[in-house]
Design a protein around this nucleic acid. Structure first.
Lengths: 114, 114
DNA sequence: TGAGTATATACCTTACGGAGTATATATCCG
DNA sequence: CGGATATATACTCCGTAAGGTATATACTCA
């Protein structure tokens, strides 16, 4: 279970993270918005917390959870090695691979940092 | 198992994808480089193929596998909602540019698979 | 055609993780 | 204090997926 990848393999956990991406939320908020039993929410939050995806703060009787991005950064970093397969600019390496479909090679986007 | 996320939850499959990110390879290549039993490699490749992560072509007696990026694009798209947590420019300007980027009139659209 | 190589599949076993249910802990307020 | 609310944990059950081993299929070439 350790790896960030196996943590986000669970659909309910992804849903929880998506909610928290918008704003921090209490357990009850999540329970209601995702229509999940409360123990299930707490259990998933525990897994997410122990894996570093979220952290919580106390607000009177509730716990408010919010995103901690580190493990997601790790996933993003792993994905980096594949981005050349779908980014538009055609570099020499990609041309070396079998992309016969060289339709509009000089079509250029506005320059941005990726 | 259906989701792209659960497919890449398996460490050996991630290792296989990383190898293929560099260049296409045969089953035997992967077997040797990852020190995995051949049936295990074949089984993982089958899972990856059926989920659309790889495709194979025949080269005499061998099968050469290579990356098909679609499911990884899906993962990348899911990650997008969290990027503001670790990118440096979180201001309205960048969000505006992102939006314009995606609405640019290119022919490539990411296909959505269920 | 038959041996050899490359890859796929079948079968069994096992472990892990998620769901569900019940219960525990903690905090607030009247 | 005691009841109500909010959240966490314990425990059992069950499905699924990965590993291992054996075997099947497919192709090549002498």
């Amino acid at each position: 279970m350790e790896s960030a990848f196996s943590i986000i393999a669970e659909p309910n956990r992804r849903a929880i993270l998506s909610l928290l991406a918008a704003s921090e939320r209490s357990v009850g908020d999540i329970e209601e918005e995702l229509q999940l039993p409360q123990p299930s929410v707490s259990k998933h939050l525990r897994v997410l917390r122990e894996a570093g995806f979220v952290e919580s703060r106390v607000d009177t009787q509730r716990r408010l959870y919010r995103i901690k991005p580190e493990p997601l950064i790790e996933v993003d970093a792993w994905l980096a090695q594949f981005r050349r397969f779908w980014t538009t600019h055609v570099d020499a390496l990609e041309r070396h691979l079998d992309h016969m479909d060289q339709s509009r090679p000089t079509k250029r986007k506005t320059r941005r940092k990726k």
